[in-house]
Design a protein around this nucleic acid. Structure first.
Lengths: 114, 114
DNA sequence: TGACTATATCGCCATGCAAGAATATTCTGG
DNA sequence: CCAGAATATTCTTGCATGGCGATATAGTCA
């Protein structure tokens, strides 16, 4: 009878692919872009104004997000509008924020000895 | 009448905190540890055997995960057992895997012209 | 075509971090 | 206390990447 390996760990390549998705989210500027796009599609310049960083950097981070298949890209005239392609973006961020809020509340309870 | 800023972007510090959580997940070794712990708590040595990396590296990644408040730590004799503290770990990974699978399927459909 | 605007890319620097080797620490049994 | 096992830490190296300035590319309008 064949022994069934119990819960083997995924291959390095699979783990790497998953890790790469998370890596895209692991940067404040990119998270700011995603948040700014929640309201509506925005041009690169709009994002530059909202995010307090250089246009070059916004373009670069947009490319990272786009390559990760998280954004749509639409050219209108000489402007380019980006928008969210994957709604799961917000699901991920919501889960993390919930966790941070829970942790902050727990910390507060300890601190104030509630 | 005061103008309401529409969907302002969070402060850099807030975005940074969220980004740090994602960064913890952005590394194959750490994801492998989380996956290995899904079955049950495991000692450091068990994890070393499952993950094909050095003991020093496993300890280091465990510390990162522990500091991120994702793991429990329990000492038994001279062994230390780690286990998952936050079930949201699996929710996050499931969402990302779903996305990767959907993308892979979409790629296949294009490739094979289904 | 030429000027202007919007976006993308390139080269560079500084920082952060994964990983290994060596060592330190902690615990157990004798 | 000592030896050995299990785990943690320190130090170093190499690489990836965020950010900026400068520049290139693309699109619009006169």
């Amino acid at each position: 009878m064949q022994k069934i390996a119990e819960n083997p760990v995924s291959s390095r390549e699979t783990l790497q692919k998953i890790a790469e998705v998370f890596r895209v989210f692991s940067e404040p500027t990119r998270l700011g872009i995603l948040q700014a796009l929640r309201a509506r599609p925005r041009s690169v310049n709009e994002l530059v104004e909202l995010l307090d960083t250089s246009q070059a950097n916004v373009s670069k981070q947009l490319r990272t997000l786009f390559d990760a298949d998280l954004l749509h890209r639409e050219q209108r005239g000489n402007q380019v509008f980006y928008s969210i392609k994957e709604e799961m973006v917000y699901e991920l961020c919501r889960i993390v924020c919930d966790k941070l809020n829970r942790r902050a509340r727990a910390d507060a309870e300890v601190f104030f000895q509630i």
